[in-house]
Amino acid sequence: MSDNWGDDGIEAEPFDVDDEPTAEPEPGRMFGLDVAEVVESMARPALARALQKAVRDIANEVVDAEVAEQLDPSVVEELQLQAATAARRSVAAALDQLDKEPADEEPELYFGSVDEFVRGYLLPNYRRRVDGHRVLWAAEWWKYAEAVARLDALWRAWEHLRQDAQTGMSVWFRDHAEHHMSILLSPEGPFASAGEGKNRENTNEKGEPLPYIAPPEGLFPDVREAAQATTNR
């Protein structure tokens, strides 16, 4: 039986697959590019760069030789002398300018003492109801060392932060006033023994300033006057 019969009994015609010949690349071209044209377009700039480099190298050699010829020892010595003189003058001028510039001065204090700060700023601006039991304060605050230290710290921080017109006071209230005042007003704070005081002098009503009795004269001298006296000497 012929080998050309298929499984269904129908004779299958044999066929040949003709492989198409692969096209040969055109001479001088690869991937559709004219190699000679590409090389030619690159050759001119490369030649120009090579010539420029050669000219620069030659020019540098000529300049170096000319400078070496002109710079005999006497000329070099004169150049060194003039450079040293110019350097000394420049340094002297810079030092002279520094002497003329005013030194950065510390801003003048707004309040001259912690007592003035307490009277002039804290009492009008930090009002709390003081009942002598749950919330404490001493009218004679200056008798309590810790209270004086904390209030002095509040004053110094305020003097510094008032220079910041944007967020200075916000930072002072948040990071300084609220911290120290919460301790000062606490029943466990430095005024724990103050109580209501004589005739309830250590208490106030809602909306009133914190209780205050002036310290003895001279206890808190004005530091601005002391600084001015030192400057005038």
Rank of each mutant, 00 (worst) to 15 (best):
A177M: 12
D8F: 06
L33D: 15
M169R: 07
A84H: 07
T22Y: 11
P73F: 00
P45C: 10
F220Q: 01
E37L: 01
A139M: 04
Q166A: 11
P73T: 00
I10W: 06
L185F: 09
G120D: 04
I183M: 10
W141K: 01
D99P: 03
W141R: 02
D16R: 14
R162T: 00
Q82P: 01
G218P: 04
I10C: 03
N4G: 08
P209W: 04
K206C: 14
L33M: 15
R49M: 10
E146F: 04
P215T: 02
L109P: 03
E188K: 12
R128F: 09
P209M: 05
E208T: 07
H176G: 08
A139C: 10
M169F: 04
P211K: 04
E37S: 12
V17E: 14
P187I: 00
A139V: 03
D8W: 05
F173I: 14
N60L: 15
A103H: 07
A23D: 05
D222Q: 06
V55W: 09
S170G: 14
D18A: 12
Q80S: 09
R200V: 02
R49K: 11
Q97M: 01
L154N: 01
I58D: 14
D7K: 08
A94V: 10
A229V: 02
A68I: 01
A153N: 14
A153K: 08
E69S: 07
W172M: 08
A214T: 06
P107A: 10
A50M: 06
A48H: 01
E159N: 10
V148Q: 02
D164K: 07
V63C: 06
E13Y: 05
A87Y: 06
E217G: 05
N202G: 15
T167S: 13
H160P: 00
P124M: 07
A165L: 09
A214H: 06
D222M: 05
A194G: 00
A94L: 15
A94T: 11
T167I: 09
P221H: 02
R150C: 02
R88T: 03
G168Y: 01
D164T: 00
E20I: 04
A46I: 04
L210T: 07
E116S: 10
Q163G: 15
H179Y: 15
R89A: 15
F31E: 12
R127P: 06
A147S: 11
E26Q: 13
L219Y: 02
R162L: 03
V55Y: 11
P107Y: 06
T203D: 10
H133A: 13
F117V: 03
D104I: 12
R88N: 11
R44P: 03
D18R: 11
R162M: 02
W172T: 06
R200F: 05
G9K: 06
H179T: 12
K198V: 10
F220I: 01
G9D: 07
K198E: 13
V135G: 00
H133I: 08
K206F: 08
K198D: 14
P216I: 02
F111E: 04
V38T: 02
W158R: 02
A145H: 07
A43E: 13
